[in-house]
Nucleic acid binder design. Structure first.
Lengths: 186, 186
DNA sequence: TTAACATGAGACAATTATGTCTCGTTTAAG
DNA sequence: CTTAAACGAGACATAATTGTCTCATGTTAA
């Protein structure tokens, strides 16, 4: 990518790319440029091509998520509370988190490594939360991670579709995650 | 599409398409053909092109899901039990269910209509289950549907990645859905 | 064995996506 | 006002995907 000096256009492209690629991962670069309200040539003034774009999106997603999660976990008084605060903080970034689970992002080698690292960290947090009684030791960690991530994505969809505010959606997701749908309410 | 007389090749193409497009929605038709172990020309002997393929996949997904869900609900003694039995039955078809939520399938007009119909049916079942106490009246139906669908997809991923058997994964998903991760175990 | 049929491989053209360039216009800083 | 940088529009060339066709091969049923 080029130097992102011209913020507005560059950011518009990045935002449009997240949005369009989330809706349709097969979207053409022209569609992304149009969605950003810029010309096709301008796209190539910022990104050398699809691969470059994907890399930028992936790195930005990793950074944003890491920062937000770190900040959220800072004030937590337990591992379970950290998971709660992280969930609340990440719901608005559900698009980013989802993008990283897609094939396009997974094929960026450095991203694979970064995700594996974040994954390992998250796993240790989960292990501590398990000792705190958040879930039984017989529940596979993979399932805990899977359902945690998917419920965050679901909460983000609720917000996107106007069915809930970010805080309402996060609350529904956390309640469902911890105590099931029976205790979930707005 | 042509008449699916020659079952093996046709089915191999359909299965490969579900699998490949689930992993990478931007996959080329050539990739799908290769994944099915057939030549590119043979693909075009069964499907006129991408659009045709998507239509066939979508219709098949709708039919399979409808049949499996109907059959599962038949022996249910309550609406809540129906949701439980449907979940168990659909987890192995998670790929199909997921495909229908993607942009490609959503752009098929007849599929939109069929999904809206299934959606309305499902909504009435949920309303009855709510009266049975499965979840509070203040919990948005959209969230119940969203989390139900996503947990099914998550369960399917657990099976796909070898982290659980279909019945284990379905059990984890149902427990998480109803009573939260705290009660989820293998 | 023979005939009908599906297939694989490869050639080919058409279509679509992508990458580059130019030029005239707009914008913002000096 | 002047100038430099970013931009939009559009032309253009290249690359990738897609759709069609032919022919040789293998399979199956009569």
């Amino acid at each position: 990518m080029l130097n992102p000096v011209r913020v507005p256009t560059y950011d518009a492209l990045v935002e449009a790319a997240f949005r369009v690629l989330n809706k349709n991962p097969a979207a053409s670069l022209a569609e992304i440029a149009i969605a950003a309200g810029v010309g096709r040539a301008t796209f190539h003034r910022h990104f050398s091509g699809r691969e470059d774009l994907i890399r930028v999106l992936a790195f930005q997603a990793v950074d944003e998520l890491q920062e937000v999660a770190d900040e959220a976990a800072r004030g937590a008084w337990s591992y379970t509370d950290a998971l709660h605060k992280i969930l609340i903080a990440i719901v608005p970034l559900g698009e980013r988190q989802w993008f990283l689970t897609q094939d396009a992002a997974q094929n960026v080698p450095e991203i694979q490594a970064a995700l594996q690292k974040q994954n390992a960290e998250f796993r240790t947090v989960l292990e501590q939360a398990q000792k705190e009684g958040l879930f039984p030791a017989t529940c596979p960690l993979e399932w805990v991670m899977q359902s945690y991530d998917l419920l965050i994505y679901g909460a983000w969809l609720m917000v996107r579709d106007g069915h809930a505010t970010p805080s309402q959606a996060a609350n529904l997701a956390w309640k469902t995650f911890t105590t099931g749908i029976k205790k979930a309410k707005l």
